[in-house]
């Protein structure tokens, strides 16, 4: 049962993954990504990673994709077909995008296959997660406590950086968009 589910979900994840690359409208692209993330989350669950599955849905599907959607709606991007028609460079073509996606995917498969021996398959006890919250917490506040604390400074600095760049200048006549085109 689990095996069948795995193959079905993997196929779905791949299909939606191609959807992200091939979709004409950015909205369809995002929705495909959402589907791909959900399939991945269930695959994590099947492998015994309960926390990872929940985090995947909460962080990626819940927060990041919603942010993507906000940006797309704010920018009012709509159909990217117009942009695609205007630029005829090779990098923008569907073939190039598909080719890049395939090349990266095949590269990863090749690397994993070439060193399959390096992987030790982990076995979860029935009904118990491989990634218990306690284990994660011990890692986070033990070995990785320095990185964890430094991440708070990182977030603070990011916030300051974004505010400094996005805030309107207090003095008039210095609107960046007015001078933006002058290179």
């Amino acid at each position: 049962m689990a095996e069948i589910l795995f193959y079905v979900l993997s196929a779905l994840a791949l299909l939606t993954g191609f959807g992200v690359v091939l979709a004409k409208s950015p909205m369809m692209s995002i929705l495909s990504l959402l589907g791909s993330f959900f399939c991945l989350a269930v695959i994590y669950l099947l492998a015994g990673f309960q926390f990872l599955a929940a985090a995947q849905i909460l962080v990626y599907a819940g927060a990041i994709l919603v942010l993507f959607l906000f940006v797309i709606m704010l920018l009012n991007l709509g159909d990217m077909g117009v942009v695609a028609e205007r630029s005829n460079s090779f990098l923008d073509s569907t073939a190039a995008r598909l080719g890049a996606a395939l090349a990266v995917g095949l590269g990863v498969i090749g690397l994993v296959a070439a060193s399959k021996a390096a992987f030790q398959p982990a076995q979860a006890e029935p009904g118990k997660a491989l990634d218990g919250l306690e284990a994660i917490a011990l890692q986070l506040f033990g070995r990785y406590s320095l990185a964890f604390e430094a991440a708070s400074i990182l977030l603070l600095a990011t916030m300051v950086a974004v505010i400094a760049l996005a805030k309107r200048q207090r003095k008039s006549g210095q609107n960046p968009t007015q001078n933006g085109g002058r290179a």
Partner: peptide
């Protein structure tokens, strides 16, 4: 990242 993000800004 702590180094790079401030520098980007």
């Amino acid at each position: 990242e702590v180094l790079s993000i401030p520098l980007y800004a």
